[in-house]
Structures are given as structure tokens and as C-alpha cells.
Write a protein that binds this DNA or RNA. Structure first.
Lengths: 225, 225
DNA sequence: CCAAAAGTGTTCCGTCTACACCCATGG
DNA sequence: CCATGGGTGTAGACGGAACACTTTTGG
């Protein structure tokens, strides 16, 4: 049982955002150069300290909003990281959150303003402190969940082609998928709806656009791709 | 990027242990009555504050050791919980850890000394603060992982019968399993070794005892039950 | 001798996998 | 007219699910 508060010591708690995006058929991560000590100049995730009047999730959302200007973003806790000297300056315990955003929604100006950029997940540089470990854990989490939770749609625009969707899966799983088998399985999933709109961006022939139907999913929230 | 420390506030950080055991073919949880305010007398997980000179995992291990006298126990982080007023007294962020122990290794005296007891997982009372949520999350985690990680052996003695092992799976998954299919799958798993010893505790005929071979598992750490 | 738990195979069905060609169109 | 990406079906392998009876022995 927890003892009396007075006897115990407090520590700094921060949140770090592992921001995934999808572009040019690659899974990307939003990272930047640290602009303060310790670790100034090193590649790093974007984070911030938790304030007295906000919960962990609120802090993560605030930090993500500051960075991207986006609200109502899919976020999932990756875990708490608490090695004693993980932060070279002070004792800081951090809670990592993984966010999935649609790169097109993201304002390039903010990118520059915060000095962050999109980097391919498989070309990640060495990051500050234990940030690489956080990313690894987040990717593992995505891989484990992508077949049973509707994660992929967060990385795509509202309307998307099946080829785009397949590329998301391939990027996250890190392996190629057979087109026919993929589409066969998609057809069995009710909440992926074909629209009558056609995208001509990526092909001359044009491809049907699909949509993730939240309500249909809510009524039958179990699937297996 | 994290700012300068001075501007920010510190908070109390604690760890809570979700201690699972297996006995009488049921999954059990070790809980007790809080012996201090706030929440004195309510059912609760066992926890403690994180000290300045220990990491989160170390804190969790210390707390678990205090409670059980056991070291080198399987532990897994369940997640951080940080609602603003989750603790009615002070702002406390907690990190929950799930531990799997063999009930037989556990000293009944310590149980009484700390005022905790084993409760069936499906007869859990309402627990202090957000502890029920932590337990729910831990059970979900167990269910998701038990078929791909060697969790079950932590709940059993070193030597166990296949019937015991099956009961562990049934208790965690909350459903019955076909005996023949279960044993067929077990036979395909290299790191579950049959010994030539026979247990006569639970049946007149006697049942072969099996053992989890760590080294074999290490050489081929992927399986699917 | 009987109650109680251990142990053992086969068949069926559904699911996953591998695999190659035609279609539509813009340039 | 051709290069590019979109779209489609089938057969065979494999894995999971259902299912019932014999064995052993302590009391």
C-alpha cells in the first residue's frame, strides 16, 4: 500500500510523442534536433513535461497539438520509461505515446517552425537517450495490432485506394503482401466501404476509393485481416 | 523537445503490482485492504513509491520482494496511469506491473503479515481508485500474449502435468479447451519437455511431469499454441 | 470393482497461400 | 500503341475443430 506522501520524493514526468506518418509508400517518423541541453543537436522525439493540472493523455495531446496543430488524433500509450539516468540532466520519468497521423493533414510550416522532419522508419538515425527503444516498442505494438485494430486508416486520408491501404500494411509489417489475397480479405470486412468515387492521381485507369466506416466498425468491432 | 527543468513541476510516482497466481484451477490475484489514508480499508493492489535511486523496474521488484520475499519473478509493465485525481490525496502517477508467481512458492505468513489474500480473478471486489482498470488491462495483456510467449510456466511449479498446464490456459482465456487438441499442439513445441517423473498427487493412475526448457526456448523463441 | 483422471487419432471443413493474366487510360 | 497501375479466380496445402473410448490404480 502506498505510504505517506511526505516521506517520498517527487520526480519530473514527461511525455514523448512517437509520431508516425505514411508517405511515398513508406512508414515515417517525425523527429527533430534537440534545441536545448542536455543533448542539444541530437535527433530526438518531440516531448514535453506533464503539468500539474493535466493527465498523461492530456499532456500527450497538448504536446502533439503544439507540434502538429492537430486534435483528435489516434494515440496509444507505449509505456513508461524510468531508468535512473535516462535523462543526463535530471531524473525524468517519461511516458511514450504513439500517434498515427495523415501526413497530408500536417502543415509543412509547423514542421519547419519546430525543426522536425519526416524520416523513413528504416533509416532512423541514433536518437537521444532511450528514444530508439521507444520507437522499437511502438513499431512492435503497431505490428501486433494492425491485424485486429483499425489502425491503418489513421495514416490515410478519409478516402483511399486499396493499393494505398495495402502499402500501409506492407510498410508496417515490413513484408510484401499478395495483392489478390489482400483484396479478397478486404472484401470480407464490412467496415471498409467502396465508394463510387475514383482516384486518378496514381494511375491512368483510375482506382476506386474506399472509406473506413466508423459506425459499422462500432457495431462489429472484431475483425482479422 | 523537453524544456528547462526549473520551470516544471515534479510529481509523486508510484508502482503498483498486479500479482497473479494459479491455484485450484483458478487464476488468482493478490490484493489487500489499504492500511493507510486515503482509502483506508478499501481493497487494493500492493504498491509503493519510486525512490530517487531506483528505476521503475527496480521499484516494482523491490515492492514485489517486500510483499512476497521472492526475487527474479516474471514481470511486465502494464502501463502508466495518470488521471489528475486518480489518487484522492495528492497527484500521483503510477506505473502498473503485472507479475506471475507460483502460489506454492509464496509464504503464507507474509500473506498475513501484509494483510493480503488470493482472490479469484472473476470474483474481484471493487478496488481502490483505478486499480480495477489496471487489472483489466493486465488480464487483456495476458490473454493476448499467452499463445506466443512462455508466460504460463511462471504460474506453475518447475515440474507440471499437462492437465495443470491446460488449466492455466483455460483460466487465463476463460474458456474450455479440447484436451486432445491441446496435447497435440504441446507435442509440437520443443521447449516443453516430458520428464520420466510421474505425479500421483492428482490421480491414481499418475501423470507424466513436464518441464519448460529455457535454453531450448532461447534457441527458438517463436511458437504458436 | 468402480470412480476418477490420464492418455490417445482421425476426419472434416474452412482458411491461407501461391500463382498469371486482362483491363482501362493518358500521354 | 504502349507503359502503368487496377482489378480478378482457382486449386492445393495446411491447420484448427469436433469428437469417444481405453488405461491405470487407489480405495
Amino acid at each position: 500500500m502506498t505510504g505517506f506522501y511526505g516521506e517520498h520524493s517527487k520526480v519530473f514526468v514527461s511525455v514523448d510523442c512517437i509520431v508516425f506518418g505514411f508517405d511515398e509508400n513508406k512508414l515515417k517518423l517525425l523527429i527533430g534536433r534537440r534545441q536545448m541541453d542536455p543533448g542539444r543537436g541530437e535527433w530526438s522525439l518531440y516531448g514535453g513535461f506533464v503539468k500539474e493540472d493535466e493527465s498523461l493523455v492530456e499532456a500527450a495531446n497538448r504536446v502533439l497539438f503544439t507540434l502538429t496543430g492537430l486534435n483528435n488524433i489516434y494515440m496509444k500509450q507505449v509505456g513508461a520509461f524510468g531508468a535512473i539516468d535516462r535523462d543526463p540532466g535530471e531524473r525524468v520519468i517519461t511516458v511514450a505515446y504513439c500517434a498515427l497521423i495523415n501526413v497530408k493533414d500536417y502543415d509543412q510550416h509547423l514542421c519547419e517552425e519546430h525543426g522536425v522532419e519526416w524520416v523513413n522508419i528504416d533509416e532512423l538515425p541514433r536518437l537521444y537517450s532511450d528514444h530508439n527503444e521507444m520507437v522499437r516498442k511502438a513499431v512492435t505494438l503497431l505490428r501486433r495490432r494492425i491485424n485486429t485494430e483499425p489502425l491503418s486508416f489513421n495514416l490515410l486520408p478519409e478516402l483511399f485506394t486499396l493499393t494505398q491501404l495495402q502499402h500501409v500494411y506492407e510498410a508496417i509489417l515490413g513484408e510484401e503482401i499478395d495483392k489478390r489475397n489482400f483484396r479478397k480479405r478486404i472484401k470480407t470486412i464490412d467496415f471498409i466501404e467502396k465508394t463510387d468515387q475514383i482516384d486518378k492521381m496514381t494511375s491512368k485507369r483510375g482506382a476506386y476509393l474506399y472509406r473506413f466506416n466508423k459506425d459499422t466498425f462500432a457495431s462489429e468491432p472484431i475483425f482479422k485481416l
